[in-house]
């Protein structure tokens, strides 16, 4: 059972949550990121996610380690989907368990922020009025915070 996965199949949130359930945990926080139809008045028809799979898994494992360091009582599982996704479909599920709810909530939010910073996954939007890679250098918002952190 891999805690950190990239898949081209639909994701069941229960399955991801099931990976972190354990007798010591009284809380499981599960986040699902889904495909939104309207963004600032523009209509999305569908999305396509592409990943550098092996590195994406490695970076998700790194995030898992960061979470372990900050919230030692948590357990984390992340599954991100790639390929073509339609409106309301689930792109990512993050599950965190902890003995008490606070650390699970905090860790879960931290994880989605880190995914958006350093996991090599790219989203292509098929807008009603054209197609574009999101987060592209040609857009106005290149790397958040100036780029992913560098590790030696």
């Amino acid at each position: 059972m891999a805690l950190f996965e990239i898949t081209s199949e639909p994701i069941a949130a229960d399955t991801v949550a099931g990976k972190v359930k354990r007798p010591e945990a009284g809380a499981v926080v599960t986040f699902s990121g889904t495909v939104r139809e309207w963004t600032n008045g523009r209509r999305t028809l569908k999305l396509e996610y592409e990943a550098y799979r092996s590195m994406a898994v490695k970076q998700m494992e790194r995030i898992g380690q960061e979470v372990q360091d900050r919230w030692p009582d948590t357990r984390t599982a992340i599954t991100h989907r790639v390929g073509e996704l339609h409106i309301t479909e689930t792109a990512v599920v993050i599950a965190v368990s902890s003995p008490h709810r606070r650390s699970a909530y905090e860790a879960n939010e931290y994880i989605i922020e880190r995914i958006k910073e350093l996991v090599p996954i790219w989203k292509k939007e098929y807008w009603e009025d054209g197609t574009a890679w999101v987060g592209d250098q040609l857009e106005t918002h290149p790397y958040s915070k100036g780029g992913p952190p560098l590790y030696d």
Binding site: Y49, M55, A91, I115, K116, I121, W122, K123, P142
Partner: peptide
Amino acid sequence: IAFIPPVSGG
């Protein structure tokens, strides 16, 4: 060596 355009997962 992989070139990583700004990521947009999640």
